[in-house]
């Protein structure tokens, strides 16, 4: 009998514990939902602002950008959006492709500027997310990222040697991140070529 009483008591307390924990979790979720609803628009605005700024810095003379449809056979996870930049007299200056290749610890978000002839104009790293600080995050550095400028795809990654045309030098200790960025750029050039066919 004492066993039965004991079990009952224990059950009671588990239910009670569950309810208390549920109430705490519920309150936290409520507050977070509230904070999310306040910050949601601002976060989306920041993300769009970042894209706009990246395009503007790739094509400083552009006066108008239009978002184009991403080709259907391209993985939306890898290429999230494509933009065309136009100059003052309406001529096509080039494309900006938001490319997110898989890096060392998740996606690296890039904005790749591709000229209508398929040459890489320049590349901006929007976010390195979970690359290793001090190693993978160095792909944002000028010395590395400007290597892409003026190259034609496919671009290859090399180590410990002077890079030739369509070659870039990997960051020592961050080969995976360097290769990832290059893969992202190559894919962006491909997509830009597909889109260019549509525009013309």
């Amino acid at each position: 009998m004492s066993q039965a009483v004991k079990t009952k008591k224990k059950n009671d307390s588990i239910a009670k514990l569950g309810i208390i924990l549920f109430i705490i979790t519920f309150c936290v979720a409520l507050v977070l939902g509230f904070v999310n609803s306040i910050t949601k628009d601002q976060i989306a605005y920041q993300a769009q602002l970042e894209i706009d700024n990246a395009i503007a810095s790739i094509y400083p003379d552009s006066t108008e950008t239009t978002e184009l449809a991403v080709p259907a056979d391209v993985d939306k996870k890898r290429i999230s959006s494509v933009y065309a930049a136009y100059g003052a007299d309406g001529e096509l200056m080039g494309f900006a492709v938001a490319s997110s290749p898989n890096g060392f610890g998740g996606a690296i978000d890039l904005m790749v500027g591709v000229l209508p002839d398929g040459t890489v104009k320049s590349v901006r790293v929007l976010s390195t997310n979970s690359e290793t600080p001090g190693l993978g995050t160095r792909v944002t550095e000028e010395d590395f990222i400007t290597q892409f400028d003026g190259n034609k795809a496919p671009i290859a990654v090399i180590k410990n040697a002077q890079p030739g045309p369509s070659e870039i030098r990997a960051i020592s200790g961050a080969t995976i991140s360097s290769t990832a960025v290059t893969t992202g750029v190559n894919l962006a050039v491909e997509v830009a070529a597909q889109v260019a066919a549509q525009v013309n």
Binding site: L32, V35, Q46
Partner: peptide, 9 residues
């Protein structure tokens, strides 16, 4: 999470 959202915004 709150700090994370606020910093992002």
């Amino acid at each position: 999470t709150m700090i994370d959202l606020i910093l992002k915004a």
